[in-house]
Design a protein around this nucleic acid. Structure first.
Lengths: 258, 258
DNA sequence: CGTGATATTGACCTCGGTCAAACTATGTGG
DNA sequence: CCACATAGTTTGACCGAGGTCAATATCACG
């Protein structure tokens, strides 16, 4: 498959027939501030002809990409929820991340040219597809996009460092508390309540992400409920005492949001 | 602090007084093929006046950068050995990576503009310092460098995913086996023996990296010795049976579910 | 040498894994 | 609407990998 990216036409007016609809729609996207490709819709930097940014719908349970797929795109989540899972030949696999609206997905393929993980929608979702080749063909006028891209990668690396720290040093209870705090903060950053939210993933998936068995996840949920820190009904989570919850985590795992 | 990067002079001959000595020395660097800034010494892409690539020596035990430092440079290791450690206020901290000659260090600060981890030399080392601002001011002629940079980041992310998998799913013995195999391969890639090498880090540091206590590291070393897989004398490692070692990593303990 | 950092090994205990049973939610087809 | 199936969740009883604490051994270096 070949990817065609046209040279930039800096003085082309916006909304000419050349500009794909998918691009102009970015203007109305509610994720303007967190979304990577938004800079693309600035009139002075709109490439032409090719769907540099396209849309794609993924139904719950379906894959956005799978390990081994040829890498040529990055994805920002427009709506919905994803998990990435990395599997090893002997059957063991692990959830390596949960991703929500506005977050960047697919960077795991940059170095090898091949995706390293499966990416599964946990609910009906929609993503914006960004041709990676475009990232490499940026000229000076596209600095902001490039910088955003680098930051997204840096953020992802910081996130994974946090996960490593979690997996390397924390008890099961601390892990779950850190997990809930992380979700809470991410929901808050998107304008949702940090105290009440609905989990999109199963106990299995949480356990896989946190490096414990799902029975342990369940036990730790029960423990936090007993201690009056949270209230749980199935996937509905109500945080009753946020400071107690962060106290459960020996240390603060605030994502270094820039 | 201001960082000045001059515009490129595409036709400037090499080795004019304008070109810093540190740059021209890149030509003789034994790490030509793995090193990021090497493209800079191509005659058609040598910036002038500013030490875009400088050298820096770090003695064993000293820090290259520390958590909280302002981020403005990336580092490629010219010789020596480093560890990065992420620390948390309550005393717990963790080794998040070991880095050897030719590898890129310091990307943890890109998103926040601040380094997230300490970086300590495990032996007397020398690094090449690359101004990050340069990465952002690249023009079309610098594609190769940019691509190399992105790949380095992708590689680092893949590495951390591997660490997460290790910490999330493996037993202590498997972790140590995986650790030794990783080192073995990296030494091999640099022309050293994959069967005999000297560890630059302590059991403590290995344990911290692998998410187990140092006594457990010691026990697992002993176990591998008992099983005739390796020979150990202090930090000297001799791999006796490489395939047995890799078999340790995949060894399934009967995985019914998951 | 001696002194302090690093390693090894043993004894004991705990956290979390394993196995099993019961319970709940959400279908699906009769 | 109910009977039944399936996937997900909770909880209990038991056990083992690895943590904890302690004693000893070995190495590096002034």
């Amino acid at each position: 498959m070949t990817i065609i990216v046209q040279p930039l036409h800096l003085d082309r007016p916006r909304n000419t027939p050349d500009v794909p609809k998918s691009l102009t729609r970015c203007l109305n996207c509610g994720l303007w501030d967190v979304c990577l490709p938004c800079d693309l819709v600035q009139p002075e930097s709109v490439p032409t002809h090719e769907p540099v940014v396209a849309r794609r719908r993924v139904k719950a349970g379906n894959l956005l990409f799978r390990a081994g797929d040829e890498f040529h795109s990055l994805y920002t989540i427009r709506s919905g929820f994803f998990k990435t899972t990395q599997c090893v030949e002997d059957g063991r696999d692990q959830v390596t991340g949960f991703y929500m609206a506005g977050e960047l997905l697919g960077m795991d393929g940059i170095s090898t040219g091949m995706h390293a993980a499966d990416s599964t929608a946990l609910e009906n979702s929609e993503v914006c597809v960004i041709q990676y080749s475009m990232m490499e063909n940026l000229n000076g006028a596209m600095h902001r996009l490039q910088r955003q891209f680098h930051r997204a990668m840096g953020r992802e690396m910081a996130r994974m460092q946090g996960v490593a720290l979690l997996l390397g040093t924390m008890t099961a209870e601390e892990r779950l508390a850190a997990f809930l705090l992380d979700l809470s903060q991410r929901f808050a950053a998107r304008g949702y309540s940090p105290m009440n939210f609905v989990l999109r993933m199963t106990r299995q998936e949480i356990g896989s992400y946190l490096g414990v068995k799902f029975e342990t996840v369940s036990r730790m949920f029960s423990k936090l409920v007993e201690d009056g820190v949270i209230k749980v009904r199935q996937k509905e989570i109500h945080i009753l005492d946020l400071s107690a919850l962060s106290h459960c985590v020996g240390h603060d795992f605030g994502r270094p949001d820039d």
